[in-house]
Amino acid sequence: MMRRYVTEKNLLREVTDFRPGAWVNLVNPSLEECLLVAREFQVDIADIRAALDDEESSRVDVSNDYTLILFDIPSIEYRHKREAYTTIPLGLIFAGDTLISVCAEDTPVLKSFADNMVKEFSTKKQIRFIYQIFLRTCVLYQSYLRIVDRRRKEIEEHIGGDTEDVDLIDLHELESNLVYFDTSLRANKMVLERLVRYSKIKKYPEDQELLEDVVVENQQAIEMTQIYRDIIKGTRELLSAVIDNRLNTAMKYLASITIVMAIPTIISGIYGMNVDEKWMPLANTPFGFGIICLITLGLCLIVIRILRKRKML
């Protein structure tokens, strides 16, 4: 899908033609749309379709005709019937006085611009527009990171209560999300460093402060990711220790019960041996069976008390 926008009187509106100062937004474009844009702006079609490859690495390519900026943005997907986070490439091509954005899906990063939710936004100020897209990307990363941390807290709240193995799986999924974020954010950091260094990309004094804010926000997102990864790792280890401790406690109780039940089993086994009854104690004593049962019960109670003193019951 291809849409073209232009800002007039601080309002964004959609147009149907290519014009100077426009923003061309390609969302999962077809090959025909890519060819049309490539011919119109003299751009290599491979650079246009680079953002459609999930394995494409973040980079900045500066040529005489246009500049390609490729970086990763956060995205929502479903893994194992659960909502999870990943990252996908977003390509920005600065060709003359037109900015071309290419993404495999309709992302909230660009949707906020298309819905006129960003202040001081103009399609005619392409460099500032690029920095604003980076800033919205960093903000979205931080928003998703807070959601991940909130889910981690929900799991922590019932540790020691109805903790289940599924909680370990959920923590693993959260940690996987942070791995994707950390890798992409560090790659984006390299892209920002190149944008700061490259002299071929025009830098305006009024946009320099915005670029510095983007660098700070991206670094903050990296630090948040690392902190949350460490916390989730500790939570996962704690949860695993709690489950192991419950297993050990259950095995201890089962062993104690086995010891107590072994006493009547041994006594009944002895009295069930095929020997002359005159050799069996209390065989000819009135109420002998009841006396043996009481003795067995007494021995069981003594063993139970010993086990309780040793905190095995």
Rank of each mutant, 00 (worst) to 15 (best):
I73W: 07
E173G: 03
G298Q: 05
V37K: 00
Q126C: 02
Y180E: 04
A22Y: 14
A114P: 02
W279F: 06
E157K: 07
I48Q: 05
P281Y: 13
L192V: 01
A95K: 13
S63G: 09
M280G: 00
D207I: 05
Q142I: 09
I169Y: 10
I232P: 10
S268Q: 13
L185M: 02
L210Q: 02
K153I: 03
I93C: 04
K9G: 00
E217I: 04
R151M: 02
F129Y: 07
I306K: 05
S256G: 15
T235D: 12
D170R: 07
K119I: 06
E173Y: 12
Q208S: 14
R197M: 13
I292Q: 15
E55R: 06
T107V: 15
S256V: 12
E164N: 13
E206S: 01
K311L: 12
A114T: 03
V118I: 04
R150E: 15
E14K: 00
S112F: 11
P281M: 11
E120A: 03
G272D: 10
I263V: 06
A250R: 13
L35D: 07
L195G: 02
V139W: 09
Q208W: 13
E14G: 00
E14Q: 09
G21T: 06
Y141F: 12
L68C: 00
L68V: 00
L90Q: 08
A241T: 03
T86S: 06
I257W: 08
F18I: 02
I302D: 14
I73S: 02
S122F: 13
G269Q: 10
C34F: 14
S112C: 08
I306T: 14
L140R: 13
S143T: 09
E14H: 01
A250I: 13
D207K: 11
I76N: 14
T137M: 14
E8W: 15
D213G: 09
L307E: 07
Q142W: 13
L36W: 04
E212G: 12
L92Q: 08
I155K: 05
N177L: 10
P281A: 06
T137V: 11
D97M: 09
W23N: 00
P205K: 15
S176Q: 10
I93D: 04
F94Q: 06
I159E: 07
R59D: 10
K124W: 03
Y271R: 02
L31K: 10
L99S: 00
G298M: 03
F181I: 01
T86Y: 07
E209V: 11
M224N: 01
C103G: 11
E77A: 03
T107P: 05
K252E: 15
V6A: 00
R49N: 04
I259P: 12
P74W: 11
E217G: 01
A22N: 14
R136K: 01
G272P: 00
K233S: 05
I295C: 04
F289D: 03
T16S: 11
F289N: 14
T265W: 06
V148A: 01
V24E: 03
P89N: 14
F18Q: 12
R59C: 15
L299I: 06
P108H: 05
E8S: 01
F113Q: 03
E212Q: 14
D65Y: 10
T163H: 07
F287M: 15
A95E: 12
A114R: 08
T285L: 09
A84I: 03
L140K: 10
